[in-house]
Amino acid sequence: MICQEAHRLIHPYLDGELDLVRSLEIEAHLKECQTCAQAYTELRSLHSAVSDAALRFEPPAALRNRVRSAVRDESPDESGATNRSARLSWRWMIPAMSFAVLVILAVSLLALLGRPSTSDLMAQEIVSSHVRSLMEKHLTDVPSSDQHTVRPWFDGRLDFSPPVKDLASAGFSLVGGRLDYIGNRPVAALVYQHRQHYINVFVCPSTGASDTSGRALVRQGYNLINWSDSGMNYWAVSDLNLAELQQFVQLLQNDRAAVRAKLLESVGRRVGI
């Protein structure tokens, strides 16, 4: 190796960038050539002088945190949101706040619309109660197929007297009665059986003034029918199919309607209509 070539390769040799063969050649040359060896020694001392840690500039301690929070301000996740809003000018703040108010209104409206209605909550409670009554072997407090036994049993247990009707002749036999607690008040639960299916009829005084006809709902696979009649609110729930449940409700209502018709008739007769 000649000195000119050595001068060219001495830097990559020092920097560890030479392949093994070239490195060995340089090393051989440095052993032979005093001038080049001297140059290499100088180069090494210069290298170690510049790479001295004292020459490095260390970032001020606060800078790292400043840069970090600047980056977080840039990122749209929550950690930076507060810092960024602090930097927003008022010019932007006003439309931004108006927009925020609109968003809040829209969200509240959606929440109101999406909130389950009272009757939905009621339906949920009714299904739970129905399921529980079958699950806990607590179907009835007063097991009787006799309406004249079941109805008086509620006396003194409730502040109202639920109408009880045996519909055994139509295939819906009365199993008994039970006290339950739904919609923050004690209610009467009348239990009927149709083949292997149980029907719970929950009865309590209605809050609304007018009578309503049957409204059918399905919750968790159970059919529910809700109606009110003569100041009483009724919920019938069963795993029975809807048609048969409607038939059952019809029978209960018809019975009530028949009684009322008879009553009106007798009143009418008395007043001479």
Partner: peptide, 19 residues
């Protein structure tokens, strides 16, 4: 122009480099 010459006698001063 990449050579690194040690021909200058003053180069020995480099050994006393301070930061």
């Amino acid at each position: 122009e990449v050579g690194f010459s040690a021909e200058n006698p003053e180069t020995r001063l480099l050994q006393t480099l301070d930061a």
